[in-house]
């Protein structure tokens, strides 16, 4: 049997380059539609509230308030507040989460040595809904936290803007399409090589 050099293999693959082109086109088209269907972005956003007793400028209970911040953080993500947020939001068009799902999405994080609490929401599939959820958690916190945990005054800090929203995708559309292109190249190359080898075998016979 005649030995085949690497140059022969590459020449045969190259001769069938049209297969690689078609393969790339097919995979790129398929990955485009897959990306369109499955690559859904998730949105995260956060807003702040301030929790304090008495007058802020007198610093009466500041150290006590700071010490209580981790407790308030737990209460904010507790079902007593989250259920009310869920109930209020259920009237919004496009809201489809359960209270349990919402509990996993909402996070309350105290800022270090401060009475400011950051309330954030992650993995929301709608930009506007992400903002609405954080605003609603802040509103319910303002209304209910003092009754539940004796947090004193709750002041909502600055409004949330569209530009504050972070967008994240596990695989972006371009990443999926790049994978599709590379797969197309590999599969096309493989088919071209096999086709070239078959032709070579036939020529030998």
């Amino acid at each position: 049997m005649k030995r085949v050099s690497l140059g022969d293999v590459l020449t045969r693959i190259w001769k069938n380059v049209f297969i690689i082109i078609i393969s790339i086109a097919v995979f790129a088209t398929a990955s485009y539609f897959i990306a369109k269907k499955y690559s859904k972005p998730s949105y995260s956003v956060s807003g702040q509230v301030m929790l304090y007793h008495g007058h802020l400028n007198k610093f009466d209970n500041l150290s006590g308030d700071i010490a209580m911040m981790p407790t308030y953080a737990h209460v904010i993500t507790d079902s007593k507040i989250i259920n009310e947020v869920d109930s209020n939001l259920s009237q919004h068009a496009g809201y489809h989460y359960t209270a349990d799902e919402l509990t996993n999405m909402v996070l309350a994080t105290p800022a270090a040595d401060s009475v400011v609490m950051t309330i954030s929401v992650t993995n929301v599939d709608n930009k506007k809904m992400a903002i609405d959820i954080v605003n609603e958690v802040r509103n319910v916190t303002k209304k209910r936290l003092n009754n539940i945990a004796g947090a004193g005054n709750v002041r909502i800090l600055g409004p949330i803007k569209d530009t504050n929203v972070e967008t994240k995708t596990v695989f972006s559309k371009s990443q999926i399409m790049e994978i599709g292109l590379i797969l197309g190249l590999l599969v096309g190359g493989l088919i071209a090589a096999i086709k070239g080898a078959n032709l070579h075998a036939r020529e030998e016979h």
Partner: peptide
């Protein structure tokens, strides 16, 4: 030159 001997030459060139 490099597409001279490929199969479906004009399709390949067009691409």
């Amino acid at each position: 030159r490099i597409t001279k001997d490929v199969y479906h030459r004009e399709f390949v060139r067009f691409v």
